[in-house]
């Protein structure tokens, strides 16, 4: 159908090929219907750029982030140790992931446990590919569109990555609109710290609605996300918002690039 060219690390090794990078798909990217589209969009770009990448497939397991943030350090470290064993068994040096939570955990929390890798969030990796001239983007479908960017906490505040995703939006010739609360003051979508997997506590409203309202006030036609969980939360927030002005669309930056290139 989509003609995606995806190999697992073990397949590559069997064929005597050493991939230049591992694509860590993450649980959302593997199982969540919406996030799977992001995974595919990113793979399309990688395929187009002829990147020799591989995935772990059945050997990949949860990074442990939600367990750690829920307070279960045991489960986190078990997951981390097992993942590190797998990663090290393939002598993996660099990793790219479309999930800021996996990105943060593998980049910052795995090294002490024996897992030292160069870790990229896909927004950084796409920038790198552009700089190296391995992919190019023309405005395409999004030329002149008003696009805003929702900073994922685990990419922005947690790791100081603010410019990489914004550069990509500028690359597709869109008009980048900043939300009132952006960059280091970006407002959480409500999913982090394992909140994604539970009902929120009693309150006036959902965090995702608070963010969705801000997005709707911004007059952006499209909100760009860079995290599968933000994507889910903000879509929910936009849907639950009672205003019938429900035409703000949400795309991951990988989808924006893939669509701009008509992949």
């Amino acid at each position: 159908m989509d003609n995606l060219n995806v190999k697992t690390f073990s397949e590559c090794i069997e064929q005597g090929v050493i991939p230049e990078i591992l694509f860590w798909v993450g649980c959302a990217g593997s199982f969540d219907e919406r996030a799977k589209k992001i995974t595919k969009a990113f793979v399309k770009i990688l395929n187009k750029a002829n990147i020799k990448f591989a995935v772990l497939g059945k050997e990949e397991s949860c990074s442990g982030d939600p367990a750690k943030r829920a307070g279960n350090e045991f489960l986190f470290q078990m997951q981390a140790m097992n993942n590190i064993e797998t990663l090290n068994s393939y002598s993996i040096k660099s990793i790219v992931t479309t999930c800021p939570h996996c990105f943060n955990t593998i980049k910052n929390e795995y090294p002490e446990l024996g897992g030292k890798y160069t870790v990229y969030h896909h927004s950084q990796f796409l920038n790198k590919l552009m700089k190296e001239g391995r992919i190019s983007v023309e405005g395409g479908n999004f030329k002149g569109k008003k696009i805003t960017f929702h900073d994922p906490c685990y990419l922005g505040r947690a790791n100081g990555v603010y410019e990489a995703p914004r550069n990509l939006i500028k690359k597709i010739d869109a008009e980048l609109i900043e939300l009132k609360r952006s960059r280091s003051k970006g407002l959480c979508c409500g999913a982090g710290g394992a909140q994604m997997f539970k009902e929120s506590e009693q309150g006036r409203k959902e965090i995702s609605s608070e963010r969705a309202e801000e997005i709707e006030e911004s007059e952006a036609e499209i909100v760009a996300a860079a995290c599968p969980f933000c994507n889910t939360m903000i879509s929910d927030g936009l849907k639950s918002d009672k205003k019938e002005k429900d035409n703000t669309k949400i795309y991951d930056i990988a989808e924006l690039i893939a669509n701009a290139n008509d992949l």
Binding site: S30, F31, C62, G64, A67, A194, F197
Partner: peptide, 26 residues
């Protein structure tokens, strides 16, 4: 709900009850 999530991670390596064997189905 968090206990469920953690059980899932422990049993099938994901916060949702999907099998690790299906990781590449996307």
């Amino acid at each position: 709900q968090l206990n469920n999530m953690m059980n899932n991670i422990e049993n099938n390596g994901a916060p949702w009850p999907y099998s690790q064997m299906d990781r590449l189905n996307w």
